[in-house]
């Protein structure tokens, strides 16, 4: 599924995206394009909405304003036309209300084109590893990884492939040890071993460096670079400064504040 020719086309596009928690606006007016081959680090202070943004991307949070598009098609099922594309590229936050009404019109016009299938297409190209990794303490690394990898992909991974991936993250010899006997970092590695077992185009990772040692971080970064070179993209949050040369940084603090005069505090 990963595009072999690195033609750097845009994969994920944010258009005037704003998120809020309760009545508080976290960030607004976010315009950003993630191309194939990009490694994007989302930075910002605690509570600024990094995880919220990731959840909006993967579809676990639908309560956001603006548009998030995957391969040019909105994940809400809306199809975006060129006018909005233009205005979204320049940072014209003031026109956002017009854009929104435009987008609403398009919803009606193209209701038959943009379908829920697009969300499905996106999900099938997505690999998400959250804060909580989905690793069961009572299961062994092998059982955990095999379940998580097969839950998502359409191909079933054999036990050998699973063991290979575990060896890649340095869990060779721990395959049959229940999770509660492993350290926090080792449990984290089980989840990250999924990165070796996937055909996803976009990796969305929430704090992937948590509990990892420097050696493991280096290896993870090399893996990011390899994935990007193959035409995929990586979006992750972290407070550390990774040693990746092609890294793009999306600082959410640039989008905090009174972009639209939403709330007077």
């Amino acid at each position: 599924m990963v595009n072999k020719s690195p033609s750097h086309h845009s994969l994920l596009t944010f258009k005037q995206v704003a998120c809020h928690r309760d009545d508080r606006v976290l960030f607004s007016g976010l315009n950003y394009t993630i191309n194939s081959g990009d490694i994007v680090q989302i930075t910002g202070a605690n509570g600024i909405g990094k995880t919220t943004l990731l959840r909006a991307i993967i579809g676990l949070l639908q309560d956001y304003e603006g548009d998030i598009c995957w391969r040019g098609q909105s994940l809400d099922g809306r199809v975006i036309d060129k006018d909005i594309d233009k205005s979204a590229n320049g940072n014209t936050a003031n026109e956002s209300t017009d854009n929104e009404s435009n987008a609403n019109e398009n919803t009606d016009k193209n209701a038959n084109k943009g379908t829920g299938n697009h969300r499905y297409d996106f999900t099938s190209e997505l690999l998400f590893i959250g804060h909580l990794a989905g690793v069961k303490q009572s299961l062994t690394p092998r059982e955990n990884l095999q379940f998580l990898a097969n839950l998502h992909g359409t191909t079933a991974y054999s036990l050998d492939q699973v063991d290979d991936a575990l060896a890649q993250v340095g869990l060779y010899g721990y395959e049959d040890m229940p999770g509660h006997q492993l350290s926090a970092g080792q449990n984290r590695r089980i989840a990250l071993a999924r990165l070796y077992l996937n055909q996803a185009t976009i990796w969305v990772l929430d704090e992937p460096y948590t509990a990892l040692d420097t050696q493991a971080i280096k290896k993870l970064e090399a893996l990011f670079v390899r994935h990007a070179e193959q035409g995929g993209c990586v979006v992750f949050t972290s407070h550390q400064a990774p040693a990746i040369q092609t890294l793009r940084i999306l600082s959410l603090s640039d989008y905090v504040g009174d972009h639209k005069g939403n709330l007077d505090e």
Binding site: L60, F128, H152
Partner: peptide
């Protein structure tokens, strides 16, 4: 409960199955 707390539920929902 435990699936919710350890994130398995998120993965299940994001599954293509």
């Amino acid at each position: 409960r435990s699936d919710y707390e350890d994130g398995t539920l998120e993965q299940c929902i994001l599954s293509t199955q």
